[in-house]
């Protein structure tokens, strides 16, 4: 697998749109397999969420981010901040496909001495920029990174993946205001709208809609997209180039829990999805059947 490219994103002789779609979709498919394999070893994990966000992460790591996989501390890299530390299983799959960590290492997920703990921690894993998990932190840290990088004259982008549940946190909106006030065009928020949080459907826990109008009112360039439609995701990320240079950007991605595995897509929605021992292989088979269609 070729790793994420260290090339200018705007290079004119880049791959065709169809090539980009295929590259991202193929990686997302493999990432979903990695997620099921990791989930099976542990018998748990945020599998439903990770399947839902796989396409978004594949777009980020295969198409958007400027990284040097062998040098995760390269100063000019784009920073990808996983606020939702418990989605680590999804990011490990993305980091493996991007060549930052070996695919074989995924087997150690959640085990003693592993570099891949159940909740993402920067000190454990190459390419994990922050220790997320306490929600509402990523965007504020992202504001500081974007301010600091701009101050230092480094052209890197900062991308923060946050969940719809994280929009409950007041600190997220402090950061949203700060980013607009400081005109941080180098900051992009990606919101995974999977409509589910710990105590149930997001709409019933704390009403957060209208999400687009909230971000717009906070001064952000806002797009909303089906987060499991790879061509649409690519077009949405491409469209960010149309934003004013000094306006922060947000891509609101509506995703389906369990996406790619009908067995899990249709299961009663639960924060911790129960998957029986015999179902892991069924899930893998369904994933491959879907890819063939």
């Amino acid at each position: 697998m070729t790793a994420t490219q260290d090339v200018d994103r705007a290079a004119p002789a880049g791959p065709s749109f169809e090539d980009r779609v295929r590259r991202v979709a193929d990686a997302a498919h493999r990432m979903r397999h990695h997620v099921l394999n990791m989930g099976e070893v542990q018998g748990q994990g945020y599998v439903g969420q990770a399947l839902g966000v796989a396409d978004v992460l594949a777009v980020a790591y295969q198409d958007q981010l400027r990284l040097r996989p062998a040098d995760p501390h390269w100063d000019e890299r784009d920073r990808f901040l996983l606020s939702i530390g418990h989605y680590a299983i999804a990011l490990y799959a993305a980091l493996a496909e991007a060549g930052v960590i070996p695919v074989e290492e995924l087997e150690t997920y959640g085990s003693d001495e592993s570099r891949l703990p159940m909740s993402g921690m920067a000190s454990y894993t190459p390419g994990m920029e922050i220790s997320g998990g306490s929600l509402g932190h990523g965007l504020g840290v992202g504001v500081g990174m974007a301010l600091g990088l701009r101050h230092r004259g480094v052209a890197s982008r900062v991308v923060n993946l946050l969940s719809d549940g994280e929009l409950d946190e007041g600190s997220t909106w402090e950061a949203a205001m700060g980013a607009a006030h400081h005109r941080l065009g180098n900051l992009t928020a990606v919101v995974d709208m999977n409509a589910l949080q710990a105590d149930g459907p997001t709409a019933g826990v704390l009403a957060i809609e209208p999400v687009e109008r909230k971000w717009e009112a906070f001064g952000w360039h806002t797009v909303r997209v089906d987060g499991n439609d790879v061509p649409a995701l690519l077009r949405a990320f491409d469209s960010l180039a149309e934003a004013d240079a000094d306006t922060p950007r947000v891509v609101i991605c509506d995703t389906r829990i369990g996406s790619g595995v009908p067995l899990l897509e249709t299961r009663e929605k639960a924060h911790f999805m129960r998957i029986d021992e015999h179902e892991w292989q069924i899930a893998r088979d369904q994933l491959d059947q879907g890819a063939q269609r």
């Binding site: 504001v143 101050h151 950061a175």
Partner: peptide, 25 residues
């Protein structure tokens, strides 16, 4: 040019300070 006003947002103040330290300031 080296002063950053974060507004009455202490969570952002400390989160952003950490982010700035992350990138070498």
């Amino acid at each position: 040019d080296r002063f950053f006003q974060m507004g009455m947002s202490e969570q952002l103040l400390l989160g952003a300070a950490a982010g700035m330290a992350e990138v070498g300031l």
